[in-house]
Computed example of a mutant assay.
Amino acid sequence: MGLEVESRPSDSPYIERVWRSRSHGVSQMMSLAASHWDLVFWEQAGQVSVAVQGPASYASPAPVPDEAVFFGISFSLGSSMPHLPVHGLVDGSAGIPDVTRRSFWLKGSNWHVPDYDNAELFVRRLVRESVLGHDPIVADVLRGASPEVSERTLQRRFLAATGLTRGAIRQIDRARQAAILIQEGVPSQEVIHRLGYFDQPHLARSLTRFVGRTATQLSDPRPPEPLSLLYKT
């Protein structure tokens, strides 16, 4: 009973992570804040659906179709589909039309439905067909580089490529790291010290907004509802 989730990293510069899951007897999960956007496929009762799920600036409860199988590609920061601007998908999603068990329609073309094992091949075709692009400045800054552009230009590029500001991305990622550490049994004071929170209330506000759980709830081995994908980077 619950939500079984499996994920793996990728060697593609366009992919943050590939994941799949299966639901059994669960109707709702807590969807964490996420700085990445996903292309999600799911099947329930023989019906296949596809959607682009945008970044999430806060955690919120989300319905889970029962007895469904999911597969998703979480794209790296800076990767985007120009015909579906990511800034318009923050805290939202866009459904993909004309979906069958084998194919779906995207930017004027018919595409084979990918799976957990061939996601990289699918993404390579997206890039080759100019459906998916990447802003190198965003990737460089996230690696610690200092590009020769103004701060205003940098913020504009981040918003265009990710839908979020650099500050929001840092806050979301830090809260997710904090949640993982707390689930691993690290005391809250140690989490505060490691991740640079000011104090306990600062950590508590961050967890509530971006994870939808308190530190006590994260420590519970049997939570009332499952969390969406939470992984170590």
Rank of each mutant, 00 (worst) to 15 (best):
V138W: 00
G72C: 08
A119W: 03
Y14R: 14
Q44Y: 08
Y197S: 02
L89G: 11
A119S: 00
S76V: 01
T216L: 14
R170P: 08
Q200E: 10
F122D: 01
L132D: 04
R174F: 07
A178Q: 02
E151L: 15
D98L: 15
V69K: 03
S150C: 02
V5F: 02
V123W: 10
T208C: 09
H193N: 09
G25Y: 03
I169V: 08
G46F: 05
R8V: 10
H112R: 13
A62L: 11
L84R: 15
A215E: 09
L121D: 13
F75I: 00
R194K: 10
E16F: 04
G2Y: 01
F122W: 12
V86R: 01
A161F: 05
D135G: 07
A56G: 09
L84N: 13
V5R: 02
Q155E: 15
L142T: 11
P136G: 11
Y116K: 01
A68K: 04
L89V: 13
S31H: 15
L121R: 13
V40G: 00
R170D: 14
P65G: 02
R8I: 14
P147D: 02
V186F: 03
L132F: 04
A51K: 13
P61G: 01
Y58N: 04
T214S: 09
H83E: 08
A51W: 11
D173Y: 07
G2R: 05
L207H: 00
S109P: 03
A51R: 11
L159F: 14
R152T: 11
G133Y: 07
Y231R: 07
V186A: 03
H87R: 12
A160L: 09
S109K: 15
S31A: 15
R166F: 13
E120H: 14
V40Y: 00
S74F: 00
V141D: 05
P226W: 06
I169M: 04
N110V: 11
P65I: 01
L84E: 12
Q177I: 02
S76M: 05
S79C: 09
R125Q: 12
G54F: 09
V211E: 03
D135H: 14
V26Q: 02
P63V: 13
E190F: 06
V211F: 01
P9E: 13
K232G: 12
A145P: 01
L230A: 09
L3N: 04
T214D: 06
G54V: 07
N118Y: 05
W37V: 04
N118I: 10
V64C: 02
T233S: 08
S23M: 10
K232N: 15
M1R: 14
